[in-house]
Nucleic acid binder design. Structure first.
Lengths: 133, 133
DNA sequence: ATTTATGCAAACTATTTGCATTGCC
DNA sequence: GGCAATGCAAATAGTTTGCATAAAT
């Protein structure tokens, strides 16, 4: 039987408060400020369990840590190749993407993971030349 | 200046010989059989450099190790959630996918990473009930 | 001769796990 | 009271890195 521990509530609250795309590390940092005894293992366990229970969404990223999202509907993300941060992208979810597959060679596809890559606004700013000429 | 070391050639040959989706570990295992002195660090360094030089393709996977592909054209993959193996999917590459994005909030998208998930033929076989009834 | 690449080990990042103890139900 | 969850530390997986040495140019 699932138990309502303080830690579980704290982890959930942190994910909600951090709004979007928090890593386990960031959740831990947020929680440990007020609750210095919480352990990182507990944060990981609760994040995974909350995701399994459908209370948060786990976003698996190519390269780098997973993120956890308080938003439950499926949507796409863009990851900055410079700072590694993850951003929302406004685009319809392609529920029938699998129809574009001509041949999966017997593989039973049940989902997909799509992450855009590029440079976030802040990093564009940082690498922009000071003045041309 | 880039140097033509035996190790670099061995790593490239292993990726080509393993055909597709070999992990660094698998490449190392293949090379070390005939060359017991090669180190894993060297395999990683050469895989990354070969990918940078465009001689092989690095496939970053959500969850699990990266793969290296001797095929250079961009194409999509499916990863088995049970055994973790990576398979080719026959589907046109969506070069203009970014056009479906309505708002990336200033993020400069320059690419995308799409991996299908599901169950491979072998794992479907393994988990199939013996006989109904 | 120069300088990049190697081998080895250690470090590192992200995450999971074993186990004695705590604390929900 | 029973059993799931915690805290802690150690283990794990995947990968990178520092450094003395070796080898390619």
């Amino acid at each position: 039987m699932k138990r309502n521990t303080i830690q579980r509530a704290l982890v959930l609250k942190a994910v909600n408060h951090l709004r979007s795309h928090a890593t386990a590390e960031e959740v831990y940092d947020a929680v440990v400020r007020d609750h210095p005894h919480i352990s990182k293992g507990t944060v990981y366990r609760n994040l995974n369990q909350l995701a399994e229970d459908g209370e948060i969404q786990k976003l698996e990223m190519p390269d780098g840590p997973d993120c956890f999202d308080h938003r439950l509907h499926r949507h796409y993300h863009a990851k900055c190749s410079q700072c590694g941060r993850v951003f929302d992208v406004d685009m319809d979810y392609m529920t029938d993407l699998v129809r574009l597959v001509k041949d999966a060679h017997g593989f039973a596809i049940d989902g997909h993971n799509l992450v855009f890559t590029g440079v976030c606004p802040a990093c564009q700013q940082a690498t922009r030349p000071v003045l041309p000429g």
